[in-house]
Design a protein around this nucleic acid. Structure first.
Lengths: 241, 241
DNA sequence: GTAACTTCTCAGCAAACTCACAGGATTCCG
DNA sequence: CGGAATCCTGTGAGTTTGCTGAGAAGTTAC
């Protein structure tokens, strides 16, 4: 994970505070790193009780909350927060299989949920959406651009100049990740970690396959934007004269 | 997934005050979230007594009131409010089975009622109607359009160009929700949460069935407006070149 | 009480997508 | 220039996802 003070987009106003609650240290660490890298101020908690305490003291702009917690259930945490008059938005983490029903009704209040295992990019997208919706995210347009390439999150649409480009989910996430970091070289590992599920165990060559797909669709036009940095990874940038 | 503060429709003038009265915390929370998200200022109460107090102090533009309350009956609350000279409009919540007769005749006074379990969209529609009728709802036209598709809330009529389209209640609600958010991709969960009853626990594939119905009726004409975004959800929008 | 209508479930089909693999192309370096 | 490392892309198997028809269950109107 490289570091580099100024990022061009999705920059939270000034380190919005995010509270991450999960009893698996792996998860809190992973998310902590990712969020801090994006410029957020992060605090973590391992139990529902600790979460409630942290909300009052840390006063986060957003809580990322596992539904399965050793002591207090995630939904119960939500209830107590509401009862206590706190209006902090929440993104729930849920296991894939069960709980569909439990989480039902969440998107009404502008909250959201993500099923494990998720990809970092997926979660980050939700974080951005929720914060933007709650006004803490600044006046960002929700559009990412580079040269004549444009990605509109809301409409889930990608355009190159006048041409609309149809992308699959994975292609979309990959392009989005490259676009957020445009101008910066990303290693294969970085990309795999962000775009694929965090427990992805497959062959790293999927990436190459998908880069190939993207090139066919996105770089079919004038100046190629997806560039290989041999021995390192890939960058998205306007070609240098 | 919606975006920032300003939604394109149904925006209450400036946070009209709504009082929600129900003894089930689940319900008050759900409605609180939904209403706040729509921009209303919300206060809740769990008993008839508390409701009466809240009306005088909070002075809401609308009361959403469960008929079944632990202490004072909902109808009784209405009577006392009238006796006290308060003219606040009320939307009653009633259980499905009983009371058909008791609540009948309510709509005369500009009040309304909704049977549990309701869908958010259904309730919100009533809220909008009642507030509009009482002048607090702003000068909204009550018509939603996209290309040659037109949905007239007041007449409860849908037209595609010159053709009138007959829709069932569920189809109408679904189309309306898509239309309000046209241009924005909605996830299956969002749609289910808003359009179906809040305790709907069934197969999520109803949505697909209803999309199919809508397509058959609405997209029978020229350019198809209902578009699938694979892996995400659906959008209503004019087709892209 | 029956007929018409509406809502929802289910299952099969078709299409789209993800991923692995392997041979071919390109680049690097001595 | 030759060999090795690295990267690109076509092919295809296996899986997932979405669409639709058929019909059961429930509701409404007369």
């Amino acid at each position: 994970m490289s570091t580099n003070g100024s990022r061009r987009q999705g920059r939270p106003a000034s380190g919005a505070r995010v509270l991450v609650v999960d009893d698996e240290p792996n998860i809190t660490e992973l998310l902590g790193m990712a969020l801090r890298y994006e410029g957020f101020t992060v605090q973590t908690a391992a139990t529902g009780r600790a979460a409630l305490a942290a909300v009052t003291q840390f006063s986060p702009a957003l809580v990322i909350l596992d539904v399965m917690l050793p002591d207090i259930d995630g939904m119960e945490v939500l209830k107590r927060l509401n009862a206590g008059g706190h209006k902090v938005p929440i993104i729930f983490l849920t296991a894939k299989d069960a709980t569909e029903d439990k989480v039902h009704g969440l998107t009404i209040g502008g909250d959201d949920y993500v099923t494990k295992p998720f990809s970092i990019e997926e979660l980050m997208a939700r974080v951005r959406v929720v914060l933007r919706r709650h006004g803490s995210g600044g006046p960002e347009s929700g559009k990412l651009t580079l040269a004549d390439l444009e990605l509109d999150d809301e409409a889930h649409e990608v355009r190159r100049g006048p041409h609309v480009i149809e992308l699959t989910t994975t292609e979309y996430r990959l392009l989005r990740y490259l676009l957020i970091n445009s101008g910066r070289v990303l290693t294969r590992t970085q990309i795999l970690d962000h775009v694929w599920h965090y427990d992805f165990g497959g062959d790293a060559s999927v990436l190459e396959t998908y880069i190939s797909y993207l090139r066919r669709k996105v770089d079919r036009f004038k100046p190629p934007l997806i560039q290989t940095v041999r021995g390192v990874g890939y960058v998205l940038r306007a070609p240098r004269s």
